[in-house]
């Protein structure tokens, strides 16, 4: 074969090949992130997003718009699995992100090792929020099953907070004299007989209790209870710290496939890493989440009462086992709570 290149052909090749190098690029293109989160984190991330946007603009020159989506943690996870294009998820329980990794394969199974503290930048716990002067004299978990006490908690099938509530109550029952799985089941069954309304998420339950005036006690995230008192005044509600509660570790993760496809991975990773920084931890503490960073935790020590905190790993063998035993379809919660009965 003879190889011939005509002059016009060479020009076409030059057009094809010679257009790339040495041309300066303009300012970074603005980018948008979607943070799919659970119910009570609205205020936290509204403040955090403003701070991060300023930080990121100053560091890289890139403008970032952050959209938020909130709902029951389980429900939010389902939406991401079904295709909601979240760049990051900040959910209530690790199991929900595991489901996104396992069923949707939107991120890798080892996602929890990507960031410190099992990818949980802040913690919280479960407390009891009662009305002024605590008219039903509720002091601990055992008081929730008394006749005439109306308890407000969301649905564990859709809400991460509700699963923490349920497990904390179960753990308390196990600790009672003669406590075992059977007595714990009986206790939690009685507790749910006193629940008149099951909201889909924690914020919905707060609305039910605080704004609609339903119930005697709200099983609430500590941050949600403190926020309610801050916004509505200490004269209307009181926090009762139970004898034991549960260490809630809400996790965060970059949704690799979405962020990779949208080209947002660097900013998404920086967004979550910034939660661990001192400014990020300060914002978490100001919004009543227990910070991980020692210096910030010491500063806000008085805000968080001391309470013995059990862990899901220690009492329930981890989230996967806890889910299968208690919250999977047909598991204990479905046996305990049957609407209409």
């Amino acid at each position: 074969m003879r190889t011939r290149f005509t002059v016009p052909g060479t020009i076409a090749l030059a057009l094809a090949m010679g257009t790339t190098p040495g041309v300066a690029q303009g300012a970074p293109k603005p980018v948008t992130l979607l943070n799919v989160s659970y119910d009570p984190t609205r205020e936290l991330y509204e403040e955090f997003n403003r701070q991060f946007q300023a930080y990121w603009k100053g560091k890289t020159g890139q403008a970032v718009t952050i959209r938020q989506s909130h709902g029951g943690s389980g429900k939010q996870a389902r939406s991401v699995i079904d295709g909601l294009e979240a760049d990051v998820v900040t959910l209530a329980v690790a199991y929900d992100i595991d489901q996104i990794a396992e069923k949707g394969r939107w991120l890798k199974a080892d996602w929890q090792s990507k960031l410190p503290n099992n990818s949980s930048p802040y913690t919280s716990t479960i407390v009891l929020l009662v009305r002024k002067d605590n008219p039903k004299s509720i002091k601990d978990w055992g008081d929730l099953v008394k006749p005439g006490v109306s308890v407000i908690t969301p649905n564990p099938k859709t809400s991460g907070g509700a699963r923490w509530n349920y497990l904390a109550a179960w753990a308390w029952a196990l600790r009672q004299p003669g406590g075992n799985d059977a007595t714990a089941k009986a206790f939690v069954t009685r507790l749910y007989k006193n629940v008149p309304v099951l909201d889909a998420g924690a914020r919905g339950s707060t609305t039910t209790f605080v704004e609609r005036g339903i119930g005697d006690v709200l099983l609430a995230w500590e941050n949600e209870a403190l926020l309610a008192i801050k916004e509505l005044g200490p004269g209307k509600f009181e926090i009762v710290t139970p004898s034991i509660s549960i260490l809630a570790e809400p996790p965060v993760a970059v949704v690799d496939r979405v962020a990779g496809k949208r080209g947002t991975k660097p900013v998404a990773e920086a967004y979550l890493e910034y939660l661990y920084s001192e400014p990020g931890q300060e914002i978490a503490a100001k919004n009543f989440y227990r910070p991980r960073l020692g210096s910030v935790a010491a500063k806000y020590q008085s805000q968080f009462p001391k309470v013995e905190l059990i862990t899901v790993d220690g009492v329930f063998g981890g989230w996967k086992k806890a889910h299968q035993t208690h919250f999977a379809d047909g598991a204990l919660f479905d046996q305990i709570y049957q609407p209409g009965r």
Partner: peptide, 13 residues
């Protein structure tokens, strides 16, 4: 498509 941003974002070779 080496340029995702800027003037040359439409260049593909």
């Amino acid at each position: 498509q080496p340029f995702k941003q800027g003037t040359l974002r439409g260049v593909g070779i």
